[in-house]
């Protein structure tokens, strides 16, 4: 049986979910018997090719997040939102009740800082969206693993269920929102 191809990325997140993914520890070797990695922070591949499973950490707060998310959706047969930020918007979404213009003014214009009274406008920098969104509000998402972060055990259980063709279920102790 050929290995399933898996890609992962972190958008408006903290890489905590990726760190937690590494908490599956030596089971990573078992996993590698079943999957191979495409784009992930582990492989340093920059763009996602055709994959079976895409795992997205973090919410959508800027234009680059949208582009990466679309790349994942267009290339992955199954897309999984992992962690509170991808699932609910998470901590970055706590800015949603503020006006983006007010935020930028406050940070770059009003308060003392290193920006010399300018809002950064380098084309290399992705522009922020007016609101932060969970990823299911921007593309179709097939599965969700909540948690901040979900534990290594939860991620392991979820992936092994999915790879074995079972409907992934976490159950008490593995499903967590915090």
């Amino acid at each position: 049986m050929s290995k399933l191809r898996v890609a992962t990325t972190s958008l408006a997140g903290c890489f905590g979910c990726h760190t937690s993914f590494l908490d599956i520890d030596e089971r990573l070797f078992d996993l590698l018997k079943l999957v191979e990695f495409d784009r992930t922070p582990l492989t340093d591949i920059k763009h996602c090719g055709p994959c079976d499973i895409g795992i997205v950490e973090g919410g959508i707060c800027n234009a680059e997040n949208v582009a990466v998310l679309r790349e994942f959706r267009n290339n992955c047969k199954v897309l999984i939102a992992i962690g509170s930020c991808a699932v609910t918007g998470g901590l970055p979404a706590q800015r949603n009740h503020l006006d983006l213009g007010d935020c930028l003014s406050e940070v770059y214009l009003t308060e003392p800082g290193t920006s010399h009274g300018l809002i950064p406008n380098d084309p290399e920098l992705p522009l922020p969206l007016d609101k932060v969104h969970p990823i299911h509000e921007v593309v179709k998402v097939d599965y969700f693993i909540p948690g901040c972060p979900p534990s290594g055990d939860a991620i392991w259980k979820f992936l092994t269920d999915l790879i074995a063709g079972r409907t992934p279920t976490l159950g008490h102790g593995l499903i967590k929102y915090d």
């Binding site: 234009a63 809002i119 406008n121 084309p123 922020p128 969206l129 007016d130 609101k131």
Partner: peptide, 21 residues
């Protein structure tokens, strides 16, 4: 999505390709 960038475009004065979705 592109309208969601309008405020950021206004604040930065950008209108390059990367400033649109």
């Amino acid at each position: 999505l592109d309208s969601a960038l309008a405020e950021a475009r206004r604040m930065t004065g950008r209108d390059d390709a990367g400033a649109h979705i």
